[in-house]
Write a protein that binds this DNA or RNA. Structure first.
Lengths: 331, 331
DNA sequence: TCTTATAATGAAAACGTTTTCATCGCCTAA
DNA sequence: TTAGGCGATGAAAACGTTTTCATTATAAGA
């Protein structure tokens, strides 16, 4: 047990109300008394119990984050953006990683009740309306990377479909026809959107029959495997749209292992522009998503909602993208 | 205001004690009653207020993390290790990034009181004994990357000095004499240790007079600047020991910009083995620190301490390293 | 001098839980 | 039958704060 406000009060010879007032300077208290209290607190190494504090004030100055994971450059960047604005507005962050597991996701959400003023949820899974019942109704919530048509929460999204479209369009303009995709997992919303962008681009250019698809899990090794698979079977594509940079790096490895060259034999375009991409060999052409901005936007929104005591405002926000042309596409 | 246990109790026509018992299944309760309660809770979308819960149980199932930052591959890896074991043992994580700012550091620590069962602190600064007064005395604490001689806490450290020694020794064995170092910031404990390792290696081989030093801030650009500085003045070194990989990547860029080649003109060895390093051009020889294990070890220790209700046990742990020879050293 | 406002403080209620203690049936063993 | 045990429940205290309300003492205005 740590020292409590009572100990400090007794030690200073005042009431607990006075101690509280000193710590929150919420009312007049005589300078000598004030000093006594401060001294007493320092002596006892007292700091206020935040759990008790949240209970009475029903305010925690904490934002809950529910993410599918916390590692890798993707999350790292997003986190950085979030951390920046949270720190700036004096909020703490509590993180729970749901690992794409439904049960864990549910548990994480429950664990947040009463400990946070707002929630940012990046739902790994494409969750139906039952998600609504899980999410607490009494605090603001921002959803990341989840279907825009979600009826009751603020959302911040990446313009995945359009980004993918632009990436593929770029390859087509360079003269490619046989363009394959390495897509992400089926239950990930943004992976599906990137696939949609690819499909739309191919079809609007009458290349629907040229489509070739392999799937990975957004990791380097899975990209390598998927690319190997693509190279091994059927007619070799001349270009590859890979739905995230990590997989693209893996894919380029696989291509090199086959004795082929990027971009001469196969052009590659990725998605995300993680820091590693500009150091890849060859440097990776990709769609840059400003992940830092993404996190920043989400956190700003939730902090504002908390401050204004708004509940769900169902605002739709979208962060943009930019085609970064490097050498892997051969242009 | 969310729904409370009282609402559920009233709704179900039972006392709050019964509801509590159902949720914690901590005592017998009739099956029909149980169902009534569960139903009532679901109807009201109730989940227990964790703040109140921690207050009575004085247990939070949460570990506090105080880190200098949360971004970049370094922290990402460490976090991953921590997250893994925390999730496994059913602990949540609350993160506060202190940004190397003393005041923020202090505030972060205060903000943890009563909200966490244990604390993992990676002190960015070399903090003297006054650190002791800041850190709460009533919960277990693990210190990361801080002086081993610290008298009152568990510590988990990276064997920085020896790692640096091995790196430099490797260069010496390859025949290099004029070996410069790009070191980190002065107030970082591990940066200082890495420098010590460099110095020891040089001196024990009678190369004390060959030492050349530049300093960076553990970022890519700062590594580039430091290297440029080293190349511009005096007799050019034939090898570079760079105290972290991010700076090494920057340094290799600077070298390439001068029209020089790694490793032909200048050999480079880094430290950390971040994922990017194997994709650098040329692939970077470096000291691999198993950051994942580092985080894992720290979290395991703190979780165990919490479970066993131990306070500070002043256990010293060290995670090892491994020399990863790639092409940048030319061997 | 007598209100009356105000600065300074304390007592006590409230926040939403868990948990101890008490109560009340009911069943079983004697 | 009755004593004892136990299953099922409720009442109330406790956790460490903040905050409302009440109480003093003091200063200012009449």
């Amino acid at each position: 047990m740590g020292k409590t406000i009572k100990d400090v009060a007794r030690n200073a010879g005042v009431s607990i109300s006075t101690v509280s007032r000193v710590f929150n300077n919420t009312a007049f208290v005589d300078e000598p008394t004030r000093q006594k209290v401060l001294l007493s607190a320092k002596e006892l190494r007292y700091s206020p119990n935040q759990a008790a504090r949240s209970l009475t004030k029903s305010e925690t100055r904490t934002i809950g984050l529910i993410l599918p994971g916390v590692f890798g450059e993707y999350f790292s960047e997003v986190l950085r953006g979030m951390d920046m604005v949270a720190a700036n507005d004096d909020f703490d962050i509590i993180i729970s990683s749901s690992k794409n597991v439904r049960a864990k996701f549910e548990k994480s959400i429950r664990a947040m009740a009463g400990r946070v003023d707002g929630l940012v949820v990046m739902s790994p899974l494409v969750i139906g309306p039952e998600l609504r019942d899980l999410i607490p109704a009494d605090i603001p919530v921002v959803l990341l990377n989840s279907p825009e048509q979600h009826p009751s929460f603020d959302t911040v999204n990446i313009n995945n479909a359009e980004g993918a479209f632009v990436a593929v369009h770029h390859l087509i303009r360079l003269g490619h026809r046989r363009i394959a995709i390495i897509k992400g997992l089926e239950n990930s919303y943004d992976a599906r959107q990137r696939y949609e962008g690819y499909r739309t681009a191919m079809e609007t250019h009458g290349l629907g029959t040229m489509m070739r698809v392999a799937a990975g899990a957004y990791t380097i090794p899975s990209g390598r495997t998927a690319a190997a698979e693509l190279l091994a079977s059927g007619e070799r594509p001349t270009a590859l749209f890979v739905s995230n940079d990590a997989m693209a790096v893996g894919a380029m490895e696989a291509i090199a292992e086959q004795g082929l060259s990027v971009p001469r034999d196969i052009a590659v375009v990725g998605f995300d522009d993680i820091p590693m991409s500009q150091y890849a060999k060859p440097p990776l052409t990709t769609i840059r998503v400003d992940l830092h901005l993404f996190g920043e936007t989400a956190m700003k929104r939730i902090v504002a909602a908390v401050r204004d005591k708004q509940k769900h405002r169902t605002e739709r926000m979208m962060v943009g993208f930019e085609l970064i042309v490097r050498q892997s596409c051969g242009s």
